[in-house]
Design a binder for these strands. Structure first.
Lengths: 172, 172
DNA sequence: ACATTCATGTAAGTAGTTACATGATTCT
DNA sequence: AGAATCATGTAACTACTTACATGAATGT
């Protein structure tokens, strides 16, 4: 159901097509929510059918630009203020850590090292992203910057933790 | 598919019933993976059918204790060493941050404050958990402690970040 | 006797993924 | 002319959730 609100939220900023939204998912929203092409087009049709968004323009190659409606914006605000976010429940990288006891110490250490490297690579990606965006001085980019900061802190934390974890391993 | 490996991983430590595993999901594994009662019983039947686990004992009230098989353990090791963990893709708390621009500053700040409080509460829960467990000196608890440390760092990071975010908001 | 906990299972529905399918427009 | 990109949609499948259903054993 969150995909629905992710789409509403993006359309609250500016009108966009399904194709545009798929790219936005991949760039800015990637570490907060993911959605496949097929799911996004299906959900956009459903949102239009219930009147939370509407086709506001048509472009070449069957492009349909959607705009959020008043009821859509109201529904987005209701979601933000009257419902509670679900705690996160799926972290495959961490899940694997619990079971490293079935591997050799060398293999376990190599996995932890891989986690450190993934975190470092993602940190590099994010700092590149931060610099590639020229942040306008508006509401949307304030919160975009705050979310990006979360990503940077998350990656830093993961890398430090993975390096700490390697140190906890007995010498072999 | 990860649920399958979560179950295999828990059974690699010691034999257990579906009921036991459900409780383990709620206590130690909760922030790494979640699974409902219905999903867990269904998956255990499927795992038994393909021979990755087997019923090793029967108890009162139809209790069935499962034990991991050799092929099950091999499959768990294969998953850990030969497949890559999927990056995390769903964080509803963070998703909402992107869209706080549609709320008033007061409402947005109140949301960020709520995030700080959730993180603090979870940190308290985890430190209680750390103290309630008497950590045996074996492989499984080494990695359990490492995973718990991740949770503590994650919560600390979230709380600090949320407080930092509130400071970024303009005075009103 | 009654409540609680232990213990498992199934059915129906929703959300998400993978694969297939098509075609217009733009760039080189 | 051919490749790349833009652009949308549907079908089949897998994963996950919610709700329903049952009943034995244990504690008070």
């Amino acid at each position: 159901m969150s995909l629905r609100y992710a789409l509403l939220g993006m359309l609250a900023e500016c009108p966009a097509s399904g194709y545009d939204l798929i790219r936005q998912f991949k760039s800015s929203l990637a570490y907060a929510w993911s959605g496949t092409q097929s799911q996004i087009y299906t959900e956009l049709s459903a949102l239009a059918e219930v009147g939370l968004i509407a086709v506001s323009d048509a472009g070449p190659r069957g492009r349909k630009e959607y705009t959020i409606s008043d009821t859509g914006l109201t529904e987005l605000r209701r979601w933000l203020t009257e419902t509670k976010p679900k705690p996160l429940a799926r972290n495959e990288k961490l899940l694997r850590v619990f079971f490293l006891g079935v591997l050799s110490k060398k293999q376990a250490e190599s996995y932890l090292n891989e986690l450190a490297m993934i975190a470092a690579a993602q940190a590099a990606e994010l700092s590149e992203l931060r610099e590639s965006i020229d942040w306008p001085d508006d509401e949307y980019s304030r919160y975009g910057r705050i979310a990006l900061e979360w990503g940077e802190r998350y990656n830093a934390m993961n890398e430090e933790w993975a390096r700490w974890a390697i140190e906890q391993m007995p010498r072999h």
